[in-house]
């Protein structure tokens, strides 16, 4: 277990190093940092001063080393557009994205798993057939269109829910939360549904496929032959094995949720990191783009590593296999 943990951490560190290198190359070679940081009428001396000050005259390797050291401490320099430290901008926006993703992920799980079980146990029911059609539609209709339709229905026509922003937020020592006010909670509903919908259909399909597979396994047949009641069979024995692959895919998809939040945040003008990133792409604000890339990759790597470790904790078969056959 310890060796496995160590190997995973080394692997994760390597991926992060590659991503940081890409970020550095973007930072160094994309556009001219000097003309982006200084006003247009800056003199030649001012330019030379700044060039010296932020170390663009140093050897390449020194610059690279400094970039990595700073990045590891969360320092990504100044945003070209806002003239503020990138880390401040990201820290300000992070809670909004985190809460949105958290709510959407819970929603996707809380709805996806029961619906998947239902469709697996009653494959011929009309609800199951309807859900299959809906999930096909859910994959073809772009998420931003779903968002717009939600706004059109619930904000424009019915006027029940807000269509933009986070509502009132409460500041808890640097972490702004929308969980504590009514308007904050109401503002969360539409964006989190939009973000959760695609993941929900995915989880539903996955649970359905896995459950159908597991229900054909020998141990289930055996339990059934012994006269085990269906409820116990389905929920105590089948469900447990169904949920293992669901956990992995969901872990990977959590990263996808963070990326898709870019679109949700644009549709609902949600003041999160994704919105910041889109503005950065639009204005070629390289430091913000680079920092977002590194931060999101870091979250991906952390989530993937945790999922891998959990996998080993949950599934005892893997521990045995790994200790006999290494390096798969």
């Amino acid at each position: 277990m310890f060796a496995f943990l160590l190997r995973r951490i080394v692997q994760a560190a390597l991926v992060m190093l590659v991503v940081a290198s890409i970020a550095f190359l973007m930072f160094r070679f994309l556009g001219d940092p000097i003309s982006n940081l200084l006003p247009e009428d800056a003199t030649v001396e001012e330019r030379a001063d700044l060039r010296e000050k932020i170390g663009l005259n140093d050897p390449f390797v020194v610059q690279y080393g400094r970039f990595i050291t700073n990045a590891a401490q969360g320092d990504f320099g100044q945003s070209y557009r806002n003239n503020r430290p990138v880390s401040d901008l990201l820290a300000e926006r992070f809670p909004a994205t985190a809460e949105l993703v958290l709510v959407a992920a819970s929603l996707a799980l809380a709805l996806g798993i029961p619906l998947g079980i239902y469709t697996a146990l009653n494959p011929r029911g009309w609800i199951s057939q309807g859900l299959q059609v809906v999930s096909l539609l859910g994959i073809s209709v772009p998420t931003f269109v779903t968002g717009i339709l939600l706004i059109l229905l619930f904000s424009v026509t019915l006027g029940w829910l807000p269509s933009f922003g986070r509502g009132e937020v409460v500041d808890l020592g640097g972490w702004t939360t929308g969980f504590l006010t009514l308007s904050g909670l109401k503002a969360l509903i539409l964006p989190s549904i939009m973000l959760a919908l695609f993941q929900m259909t995915l989880i539903m399909r996955l649970v359905r496929a896995e459950m159908l597979e597991v229900l054909r396994a020998d141990y289930i047949k055996f339990a059934r032959a012994r006269g085990m009641p269906n409820r116990m069979l389905h929920f105590k024995y089948a469900l447990k094995n169904t949920l293992i692959p669901v956990m992995t895919i969901f872990g990977l998809q959590l990263g996808g949720l963070i990326a898709f939040a870019i679109i949700t945040e644009t549709v609902f003008q949600w003041p999160g990191m994704g919105f910041l990133f889109i503005q950065a792409v639009n204005f070629s604000d390289v430091p913000v783009m680079a920092a977002y890339l590194v931060l999101v990759s870091f979250l991906f790597v952390v989530i993937n590593t945790i999922v891998d470790l959990l996998y080993h904790v949950v599934d005892p078969r893997l521990r045995v296999e790994k200790s006999t056959a290494r390096g798969v």
């Binding site: 556009g31 996808g256 990326a259 999101v296 991906f300």
Partner: peptide, 22 residues
């Protein structure tokens, strides 16, 4: 492998941003 571990929309956005910046 590295490209596949990121959601395609994020990769496309990054390439887009880099090209526009250039």
């Amino acid at each position: 492998d590295v490209l596949l571990s990121f959601p395609p929309i994020l990769v496309a956005l990054l390439i887009n941003g880099v090209l526009r910046g250039a």
